[in-house]
Write a protein that binds this DNA or RNA. Structure first.
Lengths: 224, 224, 224, 224
DNA sequence: CATGAATGAGAGTTCATTCAT
DNA sequence: GATGAATGAACTCTCATTCAT
């Protein structure tokens, strides 16, 4: 379940051609519609070579996924390292995710597509990847609760689910929008404002707190 | 872009067989992996007949989608008709969506899959469907703001986006879970509790309001 | 594990073309070297049609095997029906097998090839076929022992094994020989004489029994 | 049609690795299904090297066959050297063949496979090998006839054919059976008893000779 | 001479769609 | 209108062999 040594022995230029072709393919189609044929044509390598480099499409997909993961982690690292409140960290995560999508739209597109695949497929392919991502958010939220920043009445697991869902959808929304070169400036503010609006809701909720009614109370109402 | 008259002239039983087969297929696979072959086999109709009833798979998909829409609207209607607060309506919408998924898991699965397809595909296929769904939420939210229930600082469009995203993901989460017959009772409460937890966050936000600081203020902080 | 109805609905001529092509292929190569490509070319049908007629090569092979079995059983039937001694029945079986090979060399060739495949393959493909063939011989031998014709000291199972082995090898030997049209007459006597010689050994053994009836005599009996 | 000098210059260890890999391959599959790929992988040599050592698969096969021949001849030599009756020699040949199969199952398997290939292929590959094996049996039988041990009415060529066929089938039967480590002891007697039963038939024939020496007795002699 | 990447033909199989009956 | 056979392009994957380093 790794590219063969043959592949890693290839000159960098050729490796890159192959990975670029794969990226273009997986960014453009759901996994099950991606084809070896498209990739070998785009990479301009013989059909047979593909199978000397990779066991099959999954093999290549996985490799690409790891590369993306590494790149993305670079964006996340500084966010995590900074010591600030949970909500600020979350906001930074969202921003970093969007920044990543702007810098590497194809990489981000592939990542989004991954979360759109059937769960069974995701499970088989990258067991625990998604879980670990949500676990990370959950830990962050629990810390926030311990620090008194996050409402202790909130279920941390659910909140992680919510944050993860929205993060994926926000990036998806960004990627699916039209991106002519000129729009990049507008986008910049527009999408950051989307992040801000979403996070405002996540922070404050939709309810208009006239007189500071306790969340706990209303939650119990709601639970009925 | 509609089934032919020939199809509607078919005896009800045969029509149903076809639609059931199509439903099973589209509920099980993303649209681009669905195959005419599977459907004609499951429906036990001649291969050639398919093309006398429908122009192509999209044609059938669309028809099915409309039927589902109608069924789903029945679940939503009473929710909408009741006059109660915006948040209660939203909660009811979530519950109704879940109820629909429990009663018609395949129909719901197809619906979820739809939202997982490429936006370009969604656009081409059912222009405006998703938008109208979000517009409906948005109107509800604006009413809530006018009634003083919903925080006026919230951007209604964004909030509709958030609610829609989470609704899809909650139902998806429900559908992807394992459903042995015995679990149905447990599920019932478990998933409603997921809805409640999610909506609690949406209502109250994550922030711990010690002294009732205004959302507006913090939002501006956050936006920096 | 049967040809599809589609195949049986085909006009006889086309069915025959396909079966003839398959026969030629399976008679010429061991199963695992047979190719769909050769067959569709020889039968002059589109590649795709093959898979509308058969699940795969095994499916076709099996069908062909059954047809051969039926044809061969016609040759064997009269042998079995006649009431005569065990040795005479065995001799008749050998002759009938040879006669079958002469009349239908390709069918026989396929049959022989079958016994040359790996046992594991044979088992999976036609469970019990070979066994039943040997069981038949064994029963015949036991009857012969009860009738006092066959030496009771002989192990019937082993003898069935010996008879089966030799029968296959004799037919194989016949099929592998060159068969120009002119040789058919010579063959006739030559191969019958091979059968006779083999059966003489099987009957009398190799040992020279000095004191008791001469082998020469019995051999001439047998040759009749 | 011989391995290149390059091959013979190889260090013994590497030569052995190649030959072992080839043996494993040819013992497991009929010749036409053996693949260069499997062998170079198992031997852990570069793909290109194969073609520097051998012209093609046949070249390697042939070389291996000769090695096997030499090993097998060691088993046969003592049998032949001993001066005893023809039947005893034959019995010894069968036992030696079985012994060889027990000691070197893969070598024997390859040998058996050889006899299962098309005669045309056998002819082309190892012209005269099989013939010489049968000629050897035939000479032995003729000597037996001259010594008065073997029935002079028996056709020596046919008898050689019979003995050869059965020898191959007996060893094949042995090799195809299951061989757990514990069974080796049981096997020992079981398979020797198969040899004895087969040879009893070959010696005495199937016919029940009322007035002359009982088969039972001779069978027990043979079992010794 | 060792090495291992390059190559493309050819294998089985699936499929949407057309078309003759 | 119903039927189901025809069709061939497209897919993944394997392989023996060559060739440049």
């Amino acid at each position: 379940m790794l590219p063969t040594q043959t592949f890693f022995n290839l000159p960098q230029g050729k490796q890159k051609r192959v990975m670029d072709a794969a990226l273009a393919e997986f960014a453009a189609k759901p996994f099950h519609n991606a084809s070896v044929a498209s990739i070998v044509e785009a990479a301009d390598i013989p059909r047979g070579s593909f199978y000397q480099y990779f066991e099959d499409l999954e093999d290549l997909y996985l490799h690409l996924f790891e590369i993306i993961g590494k790149k993305k982690r670079l964006y996340m690292q500084e966010v995590v390292s900074e010591k600030k409140g949970a909500m600020n960290q979350i906001r930074s995560l969202y921003s970093a995710g969007l920044q990543f999508a702007r810098d590497h739209p194809k990489l981000a597109s592939l990542g989004i597509r991954f979360f759109r695949e059937d769960r069974s497929f995701r499970r088989r392919l990258i067991a625990g990847f998604e879980e670990s991502s949500m676990q990370f958010l959950q830990d962050m939220l629990i810390s926030g609760q311990e620090a008194g920043e996050i409402d202790p009445a909130v279920d941390a697991e659910t909140a992680a689910f919510v944050l993860h869902s929205l993060n994926v959808d926000v990036v998806d929304h960004y990627l699916e929008g039209p991106h002519s070169a000129e729009e990049l400036i507008h986008e910049s503010s527009e999408y950051l404002s989307l992040v801000n609006s979403v996070l405002y809701i996540i922070e404050q909720g939709l309810i208009h707190d006239d007189e500071c009614g306790g969340g706990q109370l209303r939650n119990q109402e709601a639970g009925g």
